[in-house]
Structures are given as C-alpha cells and as structure tokens.
C-alpha cells in the first residue's frame, strides 16, 4: 500500500518537474540574458573611459563610440542561440 503511494508520488513529482523545468527555448533565453549582463559589464568600463577621453578632447568621440559598441558583438552572437535551438 505504502509502496504504491510512494511510486505514484514519484511519478507525479517527475511530471511536475518536467513541466516546471525549462524547455529549450527558455534555456536559450537565459543564455542570451547572461550574455547581455556580460556586455553590460564590459561596456561599463569602456564607457566610462570613453566619456573621460571625450571630456578631454572631443576628437575622441568616434573612437570612443566604436570601442563602447564593441562588446555588443557578445550579445549579438549570443542571440544566435535562439535560432540554433530547436
């Protein structure tokens, strides 16, 4: 009697775990989110340096912008995950 209840609850648990757990698209979304955090962190340092350089000499605006935008590649490439995942 007790055994059957245990077996049944295990099955129930497994079903609910499978329902709660991420599907593939969800996991890819997390990957993209993490990449976005990485991009933000990289841009924090580069951005403040770029603002400093531009404050000294406005000729630095264009190189500053380019360097600040460079970490964007991280998130753009991470975005590919969404399409690769079935």
């Amino acid at each position: 009697m007790i055994d059957t209840i245990d077996a049944a609850s295990i099955v129930l648990q497994q079903e609910s775990v499978q329902k709660l757990f991420l599907n593939n698209k969800g996991a890819a979304a997390i990957a993209v989110g993490l990449a976005a955090i990485g991009t933000g962190y990289a841009q924090r340092g580069i951005g403040s340096a770029a603002v400093g350089a531009v404050a000294e000499d406005s000729d630095n605006l264009v190189p500053g912008l380019i360097f600040t935008a460079l970490p964007e590649t991280l998130i753009i490439i991470a975005l590919v995950t969404i399409f690769v995942v079935p």
């Binding site: 340092g45 580069i46 403040s48 340096a49 770029a50 603002v51 400093g52 350089a53 404050a55 000294e56 000499d57 630095n60």
Partner: peptide, 13 residues
C-alpha cells in the same frame, strides 16, 4: 573607484 574614467583623462593630459 572609477579608474577607467580617471585614467582616460589622465593619459590624455
């Protein structure tokens, strides 16, 4: 601290 900002300005100077 904000060494990135300060260093960018300081190096320019």
């Amino acid at each position: 601290s904000n060494p990135e900002f300060v260093n960018a300005r300081v190096r320019s100077r």
